[in-house]
Simulated scan of single mutants.
Amino acid sequence: MLKKRIIVCLDVKDGRTTKGVKFQNNVDIGDPVEMAKKYYEQGVDELVFYDIMASARGRGPILDLISRVAEQVFIPFCVGGGIGSIEDIRSTILAGAEKVSLNSQAVKNPELISQGARIFGNQCIVLGMDAAKDETCPSGYRVFINGGRTKTDLDAREWAIKAVKLGAGEIVLNSIDADGMKNGYEINLTKMIAESVGVPVIASGGGGTPEHLANVLKEGKADAALIASMVHSMGYTVGGIKADLNKMGVPVRM
Rank of each mutant, 00 (worst) to 15 (best):
A194T: 06
I113W: 10
R16V: 12
S67E: 14
V100P: 08
C78W: 00
M248E: 06
G60E: 01
N146A: 09
K191A: 14
E98D: 15
G128R: 13
I202M: 08
V27L: 07
Y185L: 08
R57C: 02
W159R: 06
D88L: 04
N188K: 14
P32K: 08
G81D: 11
N246F: 13
A95N: 07
F74D: 10
A156N: 02
S233E: 15
K108E: 15
G96D: 13
T92D: 05
E71P: 00
V8Y: 00
E219G: 00
K218A: 08
L154W: 12
I119H: 05
G15Q: 08
K19P: 03
N174F: 01
C78Q: 14
E158H: 04
D244H: 10
I75S: 02
F49N: 08
D64R: 14
V12N: 03
V44F: 04
K182N: 09
G15M: 08
P200F: 11
K13A: 10
M53F: 05
P200Q: 06
V107Y: 14
K162Y: 13
G84D: 10
A163I: 10
C78E: 15
V12K: 03
A178D: 12
S85W: 11
S55F: 02
M230E: 11
A56R: 15
A214F: 03
M129L: 15
T150C: 04
G206P: 03
G84C: 11
I89K: 07
F120C: 11
A106G: 08
L213V: 09
S91A: 13
R5V: 00
I193S: 02
V21Y: 04
I113Q: 06
A243M: 12
G207R: 02
F144R: 15
V231P: 00
G43F: 06
G81Y: 11
R90F: 03
C124K: 15
D153H: 04
I193L: 10
V73A: 07
E170A: 10
E41Y: 04
R5C: 00
E158M: 09
M181L: 14
M248G: 05
I29Q: 04
I29G: 05
M129S: 10
E170D: 04
I145H: 05
I187E: 04
E41R: 14
A225E: 01
I83V: 14
Y40P: 02
A131F: 04
K218F: 02
V8L: 01
Q123Y: 11
D130S: 07
V107H: 09
G96M: 12
M192K: 06
M230Y: 06
L226I: 13
N26D: 01
L226W: 01
H232S: 12
V238H: 01
D134A: 11
I227Y: 05
